[in-house]
């Protein structure tokens, strides 16, 4: 079981942080000029994340829990730079994500963020090795190095003998491990994973989680999940409900967990 790694450091700068962040989604499109003339009203809105503040630090695994619609995925996407907040500030290594252009945010994700989706989303036509190596093309890494690095990572996740296989020839667990290798290939400072074990059986899910635990060296990992076993590898679990943080157990300098809402402790989760 991973301990609260951040407790062992003085005051490391957060990898990513959200301050008073609100994210509102519009359902449908805004009425145009003609639509307004015809009396079309503004479409309904949904507040997915409501005034949330959170800090993610290097070396820690942070779990995001909560029921469906609680805002876990949206918060994950905000921290990864896939979304920009409607209000508040999301910073990545001190940079305000909203101030970056679309192209800069794409570059930021390429260089600093690894993303693991529930449905793996691998390119079906490419081999496991090519899927993993693809992001390195954008970074200008040479062909041989790309190949080497992809094979090393695939070996690390236990797929050394499956590098030439296409996703369709791999099991769900193997595909997810390829996705993890792809997320790690650029050596990102933050890895976000949305329901990474959602489509896997218990044993396969456990093996995938072991990969995450091994991957924390110099980076932070944020996992969004319903599954308590998945969240159990986290150093802390942030609970969300209706878009708000209802529990964010922050360890103090002495390593004692401080439950802001006092609902449940990390220990309780792990037990």
């Amino acid at each position: 079981m991973a301990g609260p790694a951040s407790a062992n450091r003085a005051s490391p700068p957060p990898v990513a942080s959200a301050t008073d962040v609100t994210k509102v989604f519009i359902r449908g499109s805004e009425p145009g000029r003609i639509g307004r003339l015809l009396g079309r009203s503004a479409p309904p809105t949904v507040t997915a994340v409501d005034d949330v503040s959170i800090e993610i630090e290097t070396g820690e695994i942070v779990g995001l829990s909560g029921p469906s619609g609680s805002g876990k995925s949206t918060l994950l996407h905000l921290l990864a730079g896939l979304e920009v907040p409607t209000e508040g500030t999301v910073r990545f290594q001190g940079r305000d994500v909203a101030s970056l252009s679309n192209r800069q945010r794409t570059r930021l994700r390429l260089e600093h963020v690894g993303i693991v989706f529930q449905h793996f989303h691998l390119l079906e036509s490419l081999s496991a090795r090519a899927n993993v190596a693809l992001p390195l093309v954008e970074l200008g890494v040479g062909r041989r190095t790309r190949r080497q690095r992809a094979e090393t990572l695939l070996e690390r996740v236990g797929l050394g003998d499956r590098t030439g296989h296409r996703p369709g020839e791999l099991s769900g667990g193997e595909q997810q491990r390829v996705a993890i290798a792809r997320a790690l290939v650029t050596d990102p400072t933050l890895v976000v994973a949305d329901e990474p074990t959602g489509e896997l059986d218990t044993d396969t899910g456990r093996r995938v989680l072991e990969e995450f635990e091994r991957a924390t060296d110099d980076r932070a990992i944020v996992l969004a999940s319903h599954d308590e076993e998945t969240l159990a590898i986290s150093d802390r679990v942030v609970k969300l409900h209706d878009g708000r943080v209802v529990d964010d157990p922050r360890p103090d300098e002495k390593g004692v967990v401080d439950h802001r809402s006092g609902e449940r402790t990390v220990a309780e989760f792990h037990e």
Partner: peptide, 16 residues
Amino acid sequence: RRAFAVLRAQGISATL
């Protein structure tokens, strides 16, 4: 589109 969206999410450029 889905495969390309994943690559875009991973930081692959639109040019490629």
